[in-house]
Simulated assay, not measured.
Amino acid sequence: MISSVYEEQQARVARIYREAAADYDQIGPAFYAANGARLVARVGVVAGEIVLDAGCGRGACLFPVAEAVMPGGRVVGVDLSPEMVGLTRADAERRGLAGVTVEVGDAQAPDFPAGTFDVVVSGFVLRLLPDPAAALRSYARLLKPGGRFGATIYASTFGPEWEPVRGALESFMAPATTRPPAVELDPAGRLAELMAEAGFGQVDVADEPFDIWLDGPDEWWRYMWASGYRGMMDRIPADRREEARRVVCEAAEVLRAADGRLLLPQTVRYARGVQNGS
Rank of each mutant, 00 (worst) to 15 (best):
A192K: 08
L214P: 03
W213R: 15
I2R: 04
R269Q: 12
V100C: 07
D131S: 12
Q266R: 06
P175V: 06
G189F: 03
R94A: 11
R179I: 00
S122I: 06
L128P: 01
Y270A: 00
D259E: 09
P209N: 08
A155R: 10
T157G: 04
N35K: 05
F172Y: 15
V69A: 05
D25S: 00
Y223T: 01
E250I: 00
S3G: 12
P130H: 10
M173I: 01
C249A: 07
F31D: 01
Q266E: 12
I2E: 05
S227Q: 03
L263V: 10
R166V: 14
V78A: 08
P145E: 07
G73S: 06
D25L: 03
V100A: 05
P130R: 07
I236L: 11
G228V: 04
A198Q: 10
C56T: 15
E7K: 12
G28P: 06
Y32K: 00
Y139E: 05
V5N: 06
R148W: 11
A198R: 10
S138P: 01
V254L: 02
A98I: 01
A151M: 02
M195S: 08
P64D: 09
A226N: 03
G146M: 09
P265T: 05
L194V: 11
I2M: 02
P110D: 05
V43Y: 02
A60V: 07
S171Q: 09
R230I: 14
D25P: 05
G44H: 13
L194A: 01
D131T: 05
D23K: 13
G273Y: 07
L263N: 12
V268E: 04
V203Q: 10
